[in-house]
């Protein structure tokens, strides 16, 4: 059992995460401070949520980039709507309205994919440009900083606070609880429901999944519904954490999120991927970002370092596979 865990991609990512943390910690002890931990997690929150949301689609064999646009359109239009209505209450109504919109937007993608037999990626590309355009044109083109009274304090609502020798009082934001709950839900859904197994089955062999009796169109719709709702959650959460609503939020980042999922062991062609791997992938990218700051690498070179890390990460499995194919010739594919 232990042997099998050690061989997984998740474990390798975990090891790299630990190794990286130790190295950075040795260079700059500030890395091991509680505030670094809290800040890293806080920065990762929305990426966790978005990655969890799009993971089922990736496992089922599709590639989606529209989730960022759905995050933007749902959060921003919810906000502008409630602002117009003079809403002064708390965050719950924001989440409810945005999630409903997200559900509908996700289902629209899903409907187009299943009804017209379209590639997931093509539909998501259309949805991506459509929703950002919709947001900017119909809802508003500038960021909005007027938060309802009931939501203003939310950005600093912590579940634990601690005293940090470097920065003073620091805390872990309460929305990390949502992240854990969402992660648990997706994990449970993927592992313990027939739909979840159908998602893996589709990614493994779509034809056989249909032949075996999985309701493939329905499963597709479910994956898109999840993506839509969680994108909305991510959009609203990001707005509250940063205390403003931005119509083009995440616009440059869909590929970054996909990169994190793939770092965590998901296959771009479907059939493989896990919640824990995805979480580790997101965390790894955040730790790299933070490590670059703390190790004194000038800010301007950080992206370059991330690029090199990505190249190494994608090349190693490719080389391994190439070697495996060379050795595996005797199984005779004739």
């Amino acid at each position: 059992m232990l042997n099998r865990i050690v061989k997984t991609r998740e474990f390798i990512v975990f090891l790299i995460l630990v190794a990286l943390s130790v190295i950075v910690g040795l260079i700059n002890p500030a890395f091991f401070s509680i505030s670094t931990v809290f800040d890293t997690l806080r920065a990762a929150i929305v990426y966790f949520i978005m990655a969890f949301g799009v993971l089922p689609i990736i496992i089922s064999g599709g590639i989606d980039i529209s989730f960022v646009a759905i995050a933007a359109v749902t959060s921003f239009s919810t906000h502008m709507l409630l602002l117009k209505l003079g809403y002064e209450g708390g965050t719950l109504l924001y989440y409810l309205i945005a999630c409903t919109m997200g559900l509908l937007a996700g289902l629209l993608n899903g409907f187009l994919v299943t009804r017209f037999n379209l590639p997931v990626f093509n539909v998501s590309l259309a949805a991506f440009t459509m929703w950002y355009g919709f947001n900017l044109f119909f809802i508003g083109a500038t960021a909005n900083f007027d938060l309802p009274a009931g939501t203003v304090g939310y950005y600093a609502r912590f579940i634990i606070t601690a005293r940090d020798p470097f920065v003073g009082k620091t805390g872990l934001h309460v929305s990390i609880v949502y992240v854990v709950l969402i992660g648990l839900f997706i994990w449970w859904m993927l592992k313990y429901t027939t739909i979840g197994r159908g998602i893996y089955a589709m990614g493994g062999n779509r034809e056989v999944a249909i032949r075996s009796g999985f309701n493939v169109p329905f499963i597709t719709l479910v994956t898109f519904a999840i993506m839509g709702v969680l994108s909305a959650v991510a959009g609203v959460t990001q707005a509250f954490l940063s205390r403003y609503f931005n119509p083009v939020i995440f616009i440059g980042q869909p590929l970054d999120v996909l990169a994190a999922i793939i770092l965590g062991g998901a296959s771009i062609t479907g059939g493989r991927g896990s919640v824990i791997g995805t979480a580790l992938g997101v965390l790894l990218i955040q730790v790299i970002n933070r490590a670059l700051i703390l190790t004194g690498i000038p800010v301007q070179w950080q992206r370059l370092v991330v690029g090199i890390i990505l190249i190494v990460f994608t090349s190693i499995p490719a080389l391994q596979e190439r070697r495996a194919r060379r050795i595996g010739h005797t199984t005779e594919a004739a």
Partner: peptide
């Protein structure tokens, strides 16, 4: 090397942007 194109160019997209950022600050 045999890296799937979508991954390879995703990585180099970051790398090349990184070089531009690095050189210009």
């Amino acid at each position: 090397v045999g890296v799937p194109p979508i991954l390879a160019t995703l990585a180099t997209m970051t790398l090349y942007t990184g070089i531009s950022v690095g050189l210009t600050g």
